[in-house]
């Protein structure tokens, strides 16, 4: 029997988890299956921390059918963080070109949206939009896990609505 069963730690954890998950108050939404490939294009790592939390036990993005995939070949969405440094530009474009169609680009965080950038302009492209077509935008510095989940779900809903063929 593992050492931790029957000890109080895990029960304390589970109680809190249940309470915290209720407190996020996210609606369940329609079932879907969307694979996301994340690329850090020069972020401060704040957006990564919050994206990680969105996938964690409390916000649990997977319950809406969204998951992270290791390869761009399997990805539906390219989710980009950071101001796109000149040194990450080529790697980002390679990842995008490796994706099958149809594909979408999402920009996560103010840096990826080109807002309020700090640094040497010579070292940065300045926004994801400057080199790729961005369909979903998640503002914030960094956006909270709650905001990330809401924006991704709403953005996908919008894209889907725009692509539904009118029935005659």
């Amino acid at each position: 029997m593992p050492a931790w069963t029957g000890r109080p730690g895990v029960f304390v954890l589970l109680r809190h988890l249940a309470a915290l998950r209720r407190s996020t108050d996210l609606a369940r939404g329609a079932p879907r299956s969307v694979a996301i490939r994340h690329v850090d294009a020069g972020s401060c790592n704040g957006c990564e921390h919050e994206l990680g939390a969105t996938l964690g036990p409390i916000y649990d993005l997977q319950r809406f059918g969204l998951s992270i995939t290791a390869s761009p070949r399997h990805a539906d969405i390219l989710l980009v963080t950071g101001p796109v440094t000149t040194r990450m530009r080529d790697a980002l474009l390679v990842a995008y070109s490796a994706m099958p169609e149809p594909r979408l680009v999402a920009a996560l965080g103010n840096c990826a949206l080109g807002c309020g950038l700090l640094g040497d302009p010579a070292e940065m492209i300045g926004s994801v939009e400057a080199i790729l077509p961005v369909a979903v935008r998640v503002p914030g510095c960094p956006p909270t896990p709650d905001e990330i989940a809401r924006h991704l779900l709403a953005g996908l809903e919008e894209v889907r609505a725009a692509h539904v063929r009118p029935t005659s």
Binding site: C44, N45, R87, L118, G119, D120
Partner: peptide
Amino acid sequence: YKHRGLEAAAAGATPDLAARLAQRACAACA
């Protein structure tokens, strides 16, 4: 790969801006 030239941007900056640039270097060590 994530070089953003934050130190170069701090040259000639006010002390407050320099502190903000350093904060932007890394969220986990902001």
